[in-house]
Protein backbone atom coordinates (compact mmCIF):
# COMPACT_ATOMS: atom_id res chain seq x y z
CA UNK A 1 0.00 0.00 0.00
CA UNK A 2 2.67 2.44 1.09
CA UNK A 3 4.90 1.59 -1.88
CA UNK A 4 2.03 2.14 -4.28
CA UNK A 5 1.39 5.55 -2.74
CA UNK A 6 5.07 6.50 -3.09
CA UNK A 7 5.00 5.47 -6.77
CA UNK A 8 1.79 7.49 -7.24
CA UNK A 9 3.32 10.50 -5.48
CA UNK A 10 6.41 10.47 -7.72
CA UNK A 11 4.28 9.84 -10.83
CA UNK A 12 2.06 12.89 -10.29
CA UNK A 13 5.01 15.18 -9.51
CA UNK A 14 6.75 13.99 -12.71
CA UNK A 15 3.51 14.51 -14.66
CA UNK A 16 3.18 18.03 -13.28
CA UNK A 17 6.75 18.92 -14.27
CA UNK A 18 6.33 17.33 -17.73
CA UNK A 19 3.12 19.30 -18.35
CA UNK A 20 4.68 22.54 -17.05
CA UNK A 21 7.61 22.33 -19.48
CA UNK A 22 5.63 20.81 -22.39
CA UNK A 23 4.97 24.22 -24.06
CA UNK A 24 8.70 24.91 -24.32
CA UNK A 25 9.13 21.63 -26.22
CA UNK A 26 6.04 22.39 -28.30
CA UNK A 27 7.44 25.78 -29.32
CA UNK A 28 10.50 24.05 -30.79
CA UNK A 29 8.41 21.73 -33.00
CA UNK A 30 7.46 22.39 -36.62
CA UNK A 31 8.34 25.68 -38.27
CA UNK A 32 10.25 27.60 -35.60
CA UNK A 33 10.41 31.38 -36.14
CA UNK A 34 13.92 32.94 -36.35
CA UNK A 35 15.49 33.75 -33.00
CA UNK A 36 15.31 37.25 -31.57
CA UNK A 37 17.21 38.84 -28.69
CA UNK A 38 18.01 36.48 -25.77
CA UNK A 39 15.98 38.40 -23.16
CA UNK A 40 12.95 38.53 -25.49
CA UNK A 41 13.04 34.76 -26.05
CA UNK A 42 13.46 34.23 -22.30
CA UNK A 43 10.52 36.52 -21.60
CA UNK A 44 8.32 34.60 -24.05
CA UNK A 45 9.42 31.20 -22.67
CA UNK A 46 8.53 32.29 -19.11
CA UNK A 47 5.16 33.55 -20.33
CA UNK A 48 4.27 30.25 -21.97
CA UNK A 49 5.47 28.15 -19.01
CA UNK A 50 3.63 30.45 -16.59
CA UNK A 51 0.39 30.14 -18.57
CA UNK A 52 0.63 26.34 -18.56
CA UNK A 53 1.23 26.27 -14.81
CA UNK A 54 -1.74 28.59 -14.39
CA UNK A 55 -3.98 26.08 -16.17
CA UNK A 56 -2.59 23.24 -14.05
CA UNK A 57 -4.02 25.05 -11.01
CA UNK A 58 -7.47 23.91 -12.18
CA UNK A 59 -6.38 20.26 -12.05
CA UNK A 60 -5.01 20.65 -8.50
CA UNK A 61 -8.36 21.69 -7.06
CA UNK A 62 -10.63 19.55 -9.23
CA UNK A 63 -10.94 16.89 -6.48
CA UNK A 64 -9.41 14.01 -8.41
CA UNK A 65 -9.15 11.23 -5.87
CA UNK A 66 -6.14 9.55 -7.50
CA UNK A 67 -4.09 12.77 -7.49
CA UNK A 68 -4.87 13.56 -3.87
CA UNK A 69 -4.47 10.06 -2.48
CA UNK A 70 -0.68 10.03 -2.02
CA UNK A 71 -0.40 13.50 -0.47
CA UNK A 72 -3.66 14.37 1.26
CA UNK A 73 -6.04 17.14 0.24
CA UNK A 74 -4.54 19.67 2.66
CA UNK A 75 -1.10 19.36 1.05
CA UNK A 76 -2.60 19.69 -2.44
CA UNK A 77 -4.29 22.97 -1.44
CA UNK A 78 -1.07 24.16 0.19
CA UNK A 79 0.83 23.35 -3.02
CA UNK A 80 -1.90 25.11 -5.05
CA UNK A 81 -1.24 28.26 -2.99
CA UNK A 82 2.56 28.04 -3.04
CA UNK A 83 2.90 27.23 -6.75
CA UNK A 84 0.49 30.07 -7.57
CA UNK A 85 3.03 32.54 -6.15
CA UNK A 86 5.86 30.88 -8.14
CA UNK A 87 3.68 30.96 -11.27
CA UNK A 88 2.84 34.62 -10.72
CA UNK A 89 6.58 35.36 -10.45
CA UNK A 90 7.26 33.62 -13.78
CA UNK A 91 4.35 35.38 -15.48
CA UNK A 92 5.33 38.78 -14.08
CA UNK A 93 8.89 38.27 -15.38
CA UNK A 94 7.45 38.08 -18.92
CA UNK A 95 6.42 41.78 -19.21
CA UNK A 96 9.14 42.99 -16.80
CA UNK A 97 11.93 41.58 -19.02
CA UNK A 98 10.36 43.34 -22.01
CA UNK A 99 10.09 46.64 -20.13
CA UNK A 100 13.67 46.47 -18.83
CA UNK A 101 15.42 45.50 -22.04
CA UNK A 102 13.16 47.35 -24.44
CA UNK A 103 11.71 50.39 -22.62
CA UNK A 104 9.72 51.26 -25.76
CA UNK A 105 7.43 48.33 -24.89
CA UNK A 106 6.24 50.33 -21.88
CA UNK A 107 4.01 52.03 -24.42
CA UNK A 108 2.00 48.79 -24.55
CA UNK A 109 0.68 49.68 -21.09
CA UNK A 110 -1.29 52.51 -22.66
CA UNK A 111 -4.37 50.40 -23.21
CA UNK A 112 -6.07 53.06 -25.33
CA UNK A 113 -3.38 52.99 -28.00
CA UNK A 114 -2.01 49.46 -27.53
CA UNK A 115 -2.89 46.57 -29.85
CA UNK A 116 -5.41 44.00 -28.61
CA UNK A 117 -2.75 41.38 -27.81
CA UNK A 118 -1.20 43.82 -25.32
CA UNK A 119 -4.58 44.87 -23.88
CA UNK A 120 -5.50 41.24 -23.21
CA UNK A 121 -2.06 40.54 -21.69
CA UNK A 122 -2.13 43.59 -19.39
CA UNK A 123 -5.67 42.83 -18.25
CA UNK A 124 -4.76 39.17 -17.57
CA UNK A 125 -1.80 40.16 -15.36
CA UNK A 126 -3.86 42.74 -13.45
CA UNK A 127 -6.67 40.27 -12.85
CA UNK A 128 -4.13 37.65 -11.77
CA UNK A 129 -2.72 40.12 -9.24
CA UNK A 130 -6.26 40.71 -7.98
CA UNK A 131 -6.92 36.97 -7.80
CA UNK A 132 -3.81 36.36 -5.71
CA UNK A 133 -4.33 39.32 -3.36
CA UNK A 134 -7.96 38.38 -2.68
CA UNK A 135 -6.87 34.80 -1.94
CA UNK A 136 -3.85 35.53 0.26
CA UNK A 137 -5.70 38.26 2.16
CA UNK A 138 -9.23 36.83 1.96
CA UNK A 139 -9.68 36.77 5.72
CA UNK A 140 -7.93 40.13 6.25
CA UNK A 141 -10.15 41.74 3.60
CA UNK A 142 -13.17 40.05 5.25
CA UNK A 143 -14.28 38.47 1.96
CA UNK A 144 -17.04 35.90 2.44
CA UNK A 145 -15.81 32.39 1.59
CA UNK A 146 -18.74 31.47 -0.68
CA UNK A 147 -18.52 34.69 -2.68
CA UNK A 148 -14.74 34.37 -2.88
CA UNK A 149 -15.02 30.83 -4.22
CA UNK A 150 -17.33 31.90 -7.07
CA UNK A 151 -15.10 34.85 -7.97
CA UNK A 152 -11.95 32.76 -7.71
CA UNK A 153 -13.26 30.33 -10.33
CA UNK A 154 -14.64 33.05 -12.62
CA UNK A 155 -11.48 35.19 -12.40
CA UNK A 156 -9.21 32.19 -13.02
CA UNK A 157 -11.20 31.18 -16.10
CA UNK A 158 -11.22 34.75 -17.38
CA UNK A 159 -7.46 35.12 -16.89
CA UNK A 160 -6.70 31.91 -18.81
CA UNK A 161 -9.06 32.97 -21.62
CA UNK A 162 -7.39 36.41 -21.84
CA UNK A 163 -3.92 34.83 -21.85
CA UNK A 164 -4.95 32.38 -24.58
CA UNK A 165 -6.20 35.34 -26.64
CA UNK A 166 -2.91 37.13 -25.93
CA UNK A 167 -0.70 34.30 -27.29
CA UNK A 168 -2.92 33.67 -30.31
CA UNK A 169 -2.99 37.36 -31.28
CA UNK A 170 0.79 37.69 -30.66
CA UNK A 171 1.13 34.97 -33.34
CA UNK A 172 4.95 34.85 -33.21
CA UNK A 173 5.24 31.24 -32.01
CA UNK A 174 1.72 30.20 -32.94
CA UNK A 175 2.57 30.85 -36.57
CA UNK A 176 0.93 27.71 -37.94
CA UNK A 177 -2.76 26.77 -37.71
CA UNK A 178 -2.01 23.43 -36.00
CA UNK A 179 -0.10 25.18 -33.24
CA UNK A 180 -3.01 27.56 -32.65
CA UNK A 181 -5.36 24.58 -32.71
CA UNK A 182 -3.31 22.79 -30.01
CA UNK A 183 -3.47 25.80 -27.70
CA UNK A 184 -7.17 26.36 -28.30
CA UNK A 185 -7.83 22.66 -27.63
CA UNK A 186 -5.70 22.91 -24.49
CA UNK A 187 -7.72 25.89 -23.28
CA UNK A 188 -11.00 24.13 -24.07
CA UNK A 189 -9.82 21.06 -22.12
CA UNK A 190 -9.45 23.12 -18.94
CA UNK A 191 -12.73 24.92 -19.57
CA UNK A 192 -14.32 21.47 -19.93
CA UNK A 193 -12.82 20.39 -16.64
CA UNK A 194 -14.31 23.44 -14.95
CA UNK A 195 -17.71 22.69 -16.52
CA UNK A 196 -17.43 19.14 -15.16
CA UNK A 197 -16.51 20.19 -11.62
CA UNK A 198 -18.93 23.11 -11.31
CA UNK A 199 -21.91 21.92 -13.44
CA UNK A 200 -21.89 18.19 -14.26
CA UNK A 201 -20.73 17.04 -10.82
CA UNK A 202 -23.47 19.05 -9.03
CA UNK A 203 -26.07 17.49 -11.39
CA UNK A 204 -24.83 14.06 -10.32
CA UNK A 205 -25.07 15.17 -6.67
CA UNK A 206 -28.64 16.36 -7.25
CA UNK A 207 -29.56 12.74 -7.91
CA UNK A 208 -27.98 11.67 -4.62
CA UNK A 209 -29.47 13.93 -1.93
CA UNK A 210 -29.29 13.48 1.84
CA UNK A 211 -31.73 14.72 4.46
CA UNK A 212 -30.99 16.06 7.92
CA UNK A 213 -32.05 13.55 10.55
CA UNK A 214 -31.03 15.61 13.58
CA UNK A 215 -28.65 18.30 14.78
CA UNK A 216 -27.28 17.90 18.29
CA UNK A 217 -25.02 20.17 20.35
CA UNK A 218 -21.63 18.87 21.49
CA UNK A 219 -19.12 20.11 24.03
CA UNK A 220 -16.66 22.69 22.71
CA UNK A 221 -19.14 24.84 20.72
CA UNK A 222 -19.63 22.10 18.13
CA UNK A 223 -22.70 20.58 16.50
CA UNK A 224 -23.20 17.06 15.18
CA UNK A 225 -25.17 16.88 11.97
CA UNK A 226 -26.65 13.45 11.30
CA UNK A 227 -27.73 12.78 7.71
CA UNK A 228 -29.32 9.86 5.91
CA UNK A 229 -29.48 9.24 2.16
CA UNK A 230 -32.82 10.23 0.61
CA UNK A 231 -34.03 7.67 -1.94
CA UNK A 232 -30.54 6.44 -2.79
CA UNK A 233 -28.10 4.00 -1.20
CA UNK A 234 -25.70 6.76 -0.08
CA UNK A 235 -22.02 5.89 -0.05
CA UNK A 236 -19.39 4.22 2.08
CA UNK A 237 -16.32 5.96 3.42
CA UNK A 238 -13.12 5.19 5.28
CA UNK A 239 -13.07 6.49 8.87
CA UNK A 240 -11.12 9.77 8.99
CA UNK A 241 -12.16 10.93 5.52
CA UNK A 242 -14.07 14.12 4.76
CA UNK A 243 -16.70 15.36 2.32
CA UNK A 244 -17.85 18.67 0.87
CA UNK A 245 -21.20 19.70 2.27
CA UNK A 246 -23.71 21.95 0.55
CA UNK A 247 -26.50 22.80 2.97
CA UNK A 248 -29.85 24.17 1.88
CA UNK A 249 -30.41 25.28 -1.68
CA UNK A 250 -29.01 23.20 -4.57
CA UNK A 251 -25.59 21.66 -5.21
CA UNK A 252 -25.01 24.59 -7.60
CA UNK A 253 -25.18 26.98 -4.68
CA UNK A 254 -21.40 26.96 -4.43
CA UNK A 255 -21.61 27.14 -0.65
CA UNK A 256 -19.66 23.92 -0.29
CA UNK A 257 -17.51 23.39 2.77
CA UNK A 258 -15.21 20.49 3.64
CA UNK A 259 -15.95 18.61 6.88
CA UNK A 260 -14.70 15.35 8.38
CA UNK A 261 -17.12 12.51 9.06
CA UNK A 262 -17.44 11.83 12.78
CA UNK A 263 -19.64 8.75 12.55
CA UNK A 264 -18.56 5.13 12.33
CA UNK A 265 -17.82 3.87 8.84
CA UNK A 266 -19.50 0.62 9.90
CA UNK A 267 -22.85 2.46 10.16
CA UNK A 268 -23.99 2.38 6.55
CA UNK A 269 -27.47 3.83 7.10
CA UNK A 270 -26.40 7.33 8.05
CA UNK A 271 -23.44 9.66 8.16
CA UNK A 272 -22.55 12.34 10.69
CA UNK A 273 -20.34 15.40 10.65
CA UNK A 274 -19.28 17.23 13.80
CA UNK A 275 -18.69 20.87 13.10
CA UNK A 276 -17.31 23.57 15.38
CA UNK A 277 -18.71 27.08 15.16
CA UNK A 278 -15.77 28.89 13.58
CA UNK A 279 -17.01 30.94 10.61
CA UNK A 280 -20.15 32.29 8.99
CA UNK A 281 -21.25 28.94 7.55
CA UNK A 282 -20.43 26.80 10.57
CA UNK A 283 -22.56 29.12 12.73
CA UNK A 284 -25.60 28.23 10.60
CA UNK A 285 -25.28 24.45 11.09
CA UNK A 286 -27.47 24.54 14.18
CA UNK A 287 -30.24 26.22 12.15
CA UNK A 288 -30.62 23.19 9.87
CA UNK A 289 -33.97 21.48 10.43
CA UNK A 290 -34.74 17.73 10.34
CA UNK A 291 -35.99 16.75 6.89
CA UNK A 292 -34.04 19.51 5.15
CA UNK A 293 -32.14 18.44 2.03
CA UNK A 294 -28.35 18.69 1.84
CA UNK A 295 -25.80 17.52 -0.72
CA UNK A 296 -22.61 15.67 0.10
CA UNK A 297 -19.68 15.30 -2.32
CA UNK A 298 -17.30 12.68 -1.04
CA UNK A 299 -15.61 10.82 0.41
CA UNK A 300 -12.15 12.34 0.08
CA UNK A 301 -8.88 12.16 1.97
CA UNK A 302 -6.18 9.70 2.89
CA UNK A 303 -6.26 10.36 6.64
CA UNK A 304 -7.54 6.96 7.72
CA UNK A 305 -6.49 3.88 9.68
CA UNK A 306 -7.85 1.92 6.72
CA UNK A 307 -4.93 3.22 4.65
CA UNK A 308 -2.51 1.81 7.23
CA UNK A 309 -4.16 -1.52 8.01
CA UNK A 310 -0.87 -3.30 8.76
CA UNK A 311 -0.16 -1.27 11.93
CA UNK A 312 0.19 -3.12 15.22
CA UNK A 313 -0.78 -0.02 17.18
CA UNK A 314 -2.31 3.40 16.48
CA UNK A 315 -1.55 6.71 18.16
CA UNK A 316 -4.11 9.52 17.72
CA UNK A 317 -3.33 13.13 18.53
CA UNK A 318 -6.23 15.58 18.46
CA UNK A 319 -6.51 19.27 19.20
CA UNK A 320 -10.01 20.68 19.78
CA UNK A 321 -12.45 19.84 16.99
CA UNK A 322 -9.58 17.93 15.30
CA UNK A 323 -11.03 15.02 17.28
CA UNK A 324 -13.75 14.66 14.60
CA UNK A 325 -11.96 12.38 12.07
CA UNK A 326 -10.26 10.55 14.97
CA UNK A 327 -13.67 9.96 16.61
CA UNK A 328 -14.83 8.39 13.35
CA UNK A 329 -11.81 6.07 13.43
CA UNK A 330 -12.32 5.16 17.11
CA UNK A 331 -16.04 4.46 16.64
CA UNK A 332 -15.29 2.35 13.56
CA UNK A 333 -12.56 0.35 15.32
CA UNK A 334 -14.97 -0.24 18.23
CA UNK A 335 -17.71 -1.44 15.86
CA UNK A 336 -15.18 -3.79 14.27
CA UNK A 337 -14.17 -5.11 17.72
CA UNK A 338 -10.55 -4.19 16.95
CA UNK A 339 -8.24 -5.30 19.79
CA UNK A 340 -5.05 -3.47 18.80
CA UNK A 341 -3.59 -1.01 21.36
CA UNK A 342 -4.75 2.59 20.80
CA UNK A 343 -3.40 5.73 22.45
CA UNK A 344 -5.24 9.06 22.20
CA UNK A 345 -3.72 12.42 23.14
CA UNK A 346 -6.50 14.99 23.25
CA UNK A 347 -5.64 18.64 23.80
CA UNK A 348 -8.57 20.89 24.78
CA UNK A 349 -9.02 24.32 26.27
CA UNK A 350 -10.77 23.17 29.45
CA UNK A 351 -12.61 20.13 30.82
CA UNK A 352 -16.04 21.43 29.81
CA UNK A 353 -15.05 21.90 26.17
CA UNK A 354 -13.71 18.36 25.64
CA UNK A 355 -15.81 17.34 22.62
CA UNK A 356 -17.22 13.75 22.91
CA UNK A 357 -15.91 13.58 26.50
CA UNK A 358 -18.58 11.20 27.79
CA UNK A 359 -18.62 8.98 24.70
CA UNK A 360 -14.83 8.66 24.72
CA UNK A 361 -15.10 7.20 28.24
CA UNK A 362 -17.61 4.62 26.99
CA UNK A 363 -15.21 3.61 24.21
CA UNK A 364 -12.43 2.70 26.67
CA UNK A 365 -13.95 -0.66 27.71
CA UNK A 366 -14.93 -1.45 24.10
CA UNK A 367 -11.40 -0.85 22.80
CA UNK A 368 -7.83 -1.38 23.98
CA UNK A 369 -7.73 2.43 24.40
CA UNK A 370 -5.77 4.77 26.66
CA UNK A 371 -6.71 8.48 26.66
CA UNK A 372 -4.36 11.28 27.72
CA UNK A 373 -6.29 14.54 28.12
CA UNK A 374 -4.17 17.70 28.01
CA UNK A 375 -5.99 20.79 29.28
CA UNK A 376 -4.87 24.35 28.68
CA UNK A 377 -6.97 25.61 31.59
CA UNK A 378 -7.50 22.61 33.89
CA UNK A 379 -9.93 22.66 36.83
CA UNK A 380 -8.52 23.13 40.35
CA UNK A 381 -8.23 19.46 41.29
CA UNK A 382 -6.88 18.18 37.95
CA UNK A 383 -4.13 15.59 38.18
CA UNK A 384 -3.77 15.00 34.44
CA UNK A 385 -1.57 16.75 31.88
CA UNK A 386 -1.85 20.53 31.64
CA UNK A 387 -0.73 23.33 29.30
CA UNK A 388 0.01 22.55 25.68
CA UNK A 389 0.74 19.12 24.23
CA UNK A 390 4.52 19.28 24.64
CA UNK A 391 7.34 16.96 23.68
CA UNK A 392 7.67 15.99 27.36
CA UNK A 393 4.02 14.91 27.56
CA UNK A 394 4.32 12.92 24.33
CA UNK A 395 7.53 11.25 25.50
CA UNK A 396 5.99 10.32 28.84
CA UNK A 397 3.13 8.37 27.28
CA UNK A 398 4.41 7.19 23.89
CA UNK A 399 5.81 3.67 23.54
CA UNK A 400 9.54 3.70 24.31
CA UNK A 401 10.62 1.59 21.35
CA UNK A 402 9.44 2.63 17.90
CA UNK A 403 9.10 -0.16 15.40
CA UNK A 404 8.98 1.44 11.98
CA UNK A 405 5.66 0.74 10.24
CA UNK A 406 4.30 -1.04 13.32
CA UNK A 407 2.88 2.13 14.90
CA UNK A 408 1.05 4.76 12.88
CA UNK A 409 0.37 8.26 14.24
CA UNK A 410 -2.71 10.28 13.20
CA UNK A 411 -2.57 13.99 13.97
CA UNK A 412 -5.38 16.52 13.52
CA UNK A 413 -5.75 19.94 15.13
CA UNK A 414 -5.19 23.65 14.69
CA UNK A 415 -2.14 24.47 12.49
CA UNK A 416 0.17 25.85 15.26
CA UNK A 417 -0.44 22.76 17.41
CA UNK A 418 0.13 20.43 14.46
CA UNK A 419 3.41 22.11 13.55
CA UNK A 420 4.65 21.92 17.15
CA UNK A 421 3.57 18.30 17.68
CA UNK A 422 5.05 17.21 14.36
CA UNK A 423 8.41 18.76 15.31
CA UNK A 424 8.24 17.09 18.74
CA UNK A 425 7.45 13.69 17.21
CA UNK A 426 10.36 13.97 14.76
CA UNK A 427 12.68 14.91 17.65
CA UNK A 428 11.45 11.83 19.51
CA UNK A 429 12.56 9.73 16.55
CA UNK A 430 9.14 9.00 15.04
CA UNK A 431 9.73 8.41 11.31
CA UNK A 432 8.02 11.04 9.14
CA UNK A 433 6.38 8.28 7.10
CA UNK A 434 4.52 7.10 10.22
CA UNK A 435 2.97 10.53 10.89
CA UNK A 436 -0.32 11.16 9.10
CA UNK A 437 -1.94 14.54 9.44
CA UNK A 438 -4.98 16.44 8.28
CA UNK A 439 -5.52 20.15 8.62
CA UNK A 440 -9.16 21.08 8.96
CA UNK A 441 -8.86 24.63 7.65
CA UNK A 442 -8.31 23.70 4.00
CA UNK A 443 -9.32 27.02 2.54
Amino acid sequence: MRRRLVVQAVFWIATYIALAIAPLVLLKLGEVPPGREYWRELSVALGFAGLTMLTLQFALTARFRSIKAPYGADVIYHFHRQISLVTFGLILAHPLLLFIFSPATLGLLNVLAAPWRARLGVLAVLLLLGLILTSVWRKRLAIDYSAWRIWHGLLATGIVALAMGHIILARHYLNQPWKQAIWVAYGLFWAGLLVYVRIIKPILLLRRPFVVERVTPERGAAWTLVLRPDGNPGFGFMPGQFAWLTAGRSPFAEAEHPFSFSSSAADTGRIAFTIKELGDFTRTIKDLRPGQRVYVDGPFGHFSVDRQPHAAEYVFIAGGVGITPIMSMLRTLADRVDVRPLLLFFASKDWDSVTFREELETLIPRLNLKIVHVLEKPPAQWDGERGFLSQAVLEKHLPKEWDRNAIEVFLCGPPPMMAAVEQALLKLGVPLGDIHSERFNLV
Binding site: I13, Y16, I17, A20, I21, L24, L27, K28, V32, G35, R36, E37, Y38, W39, E41, L42, A45, L46, A49, M53, Y71, G72, D74, V75, H78, F79, Q82, I83, L85, V86, T87, G89, L90, E422, L426, L432, I435, S437
Partner: peptide
Protein backbone atom coordinates in the same frame (compact mmCIF):
# COMPACT_ATOMS: atom_id res chain seq x y z
CA UNK B 1 6.38 18.87 7.51
CA UNK B 2 4.55 17.61 4.42
CA UNK B 3 3.49 21.22 3.81
CA UNK B 4 7.09 22.37 4.06
CA UNK B 5 8.11 19.67 1.57
CA UNK B 6 5.39 20.89 -0.80
CA UNK B 7 6.63 24.49 -0.42
CA UNK B 8 10.13 23.38 -1.39
CA UNK B 9 8.72 21.34 -4.26
CA UNK B 10 6.96 24.46 -5.56
CA UNK B 11 10.20 26.47 -5.33
CA UNK B 12 12.21 23.69 -7.04
CA UNK B 13 9.67 23.38 -9.85
CA UNK B 14 9.81 27.16 -10.32
CA UNK B 15 13.62 27.07 -10.53
CA UNK B 16 13.54 24.11 -12.92
CA UNK B 17 11.13 25.92 -15.23
CA UNK B 18 13.31 29.03 -15.04
CA UNK B 19 16.43 27.02 -15.98
CA UNK B 20 14.61 25.38 -18.89
CA UNK B 21 13.34 28.78 -20.06
CA UNK B 22 16.93 30.10 -19.96
CA UNK B 23 18.03 27.04 -21.98
CA UNK B 24 15.17 27.53 -24.44
CA UNK B 25 16.12 31.17 -25.01
CA UNK B 26 19.76 30.16 -25.45
CA UNK B 27 18.81 27.52 -28.05
CA UNK B 28 16.61 30.01 -29.87
CA UNK B 29 19.33 32.65 -30.14
CA UNK B 30 22.48 30.51 -30.44
Amino acid sequence: MRQRVSTWLAICIGLLVLILALAFAWMQTA
